[in-house]
Design a binder for these strands. Structure first.
Lengths: 128, 128
DNA sequence: CACATTAGTTCCCTTTTGGGTACTATAATA
DNA sequence: TATTATAGTACCCAAAAGGGAACTAATGTG
């Protein structure tokens, strides 16, 4: 399965975009887009998890969607999928070496989110 | 317009999630989800831009989608919108103080994307 | 008067995402 | 022998997100 190339010449850091005429930011967007991917990566950054563990941490995701998102992350080589040949089935998901490089970014995002909640939700509750 | 609260108790760093019973990661996901938001924030991190400037940097986005995404980022207080009362219209978009706190994250994402392209695209071209 | 310009909006259509239910395999358990 | 458990898949339908093209407002220019 051939990956789609993403050309992008307007990147304001294109001189740092190495030898590819592709904006790295667009690549990141492709990887991380999707309603559950950031959350999945975040949970896996702590430790590998079974399918059912991830599902229980994401109460609103359906089995079908979770499978889809996991497959997509696997295709992008962000996570691995390890099947244990047991009954009932056991499948473990975890970050690849490449995926682990996202951890500091995820941690900063978490920090930002926390700060955001403080600023924005406090602002709202004081207005109400 | 009341923002939607996002409850989430399974966050593996919930003890650091301050006083809100809301996973910050989910909040971040809400803010940066959307096909163009990360790119828009990235471009604005360099300098404020006019609507038409952003559009020209995102050749594949339609006017409607760009407007939508900008409105959404504005609602989340990540960017500001400044209308100049001139003809033809001039509207400037830029990061808010809160939005500027995303810059280091965006820069790391860019770095990750660049690294990803090197590893994954080189791997592919050597297989082909 | 016609045209260009900018930042939109509106309408309609397609694609993606999501939701529900049913179905599968296999071994252990009751 | 029927049930349970896990990690899915298949199918069908509804909702949301996204895309394309046409339209608008207001003024300056030819």
């Amino acid at each position: 399965m051939k990956k789609q190339l993403i050309k992008h010449e307007q990147c304001h850091m294109r001189d740092k975009c190495l030898k590819y005429d592709i904006c790295p930011m667009l690549q990141v967007q492709k990887i991380v887009a999707g309603k559950w991917k950031i959350l999945i990566l975040w949970y896996l950054s702590y430790s590998p998890l079974r399918f059912s563990d991830i599902k229980s941490k994401l109460p609103d995701v359906t089995q079908k969607m979770l499978t889809q998102q996991l497959r997509s992350l696997e295709e992008d080589n962000m996570i691995y999928r390890k099947v244990y040949p047991v009954v009932p089935p056991k499948v473990e998901y975890g970050l690849t070496d490449l995926g682990k490089k996202l951890i500091p970014i995820l941690e900063m995002m978490h920090g930002f989110g926390a700060e955001y909640l403080v600023q924005e939700l406090d602002k709202e509750s004081s207005v109400d």
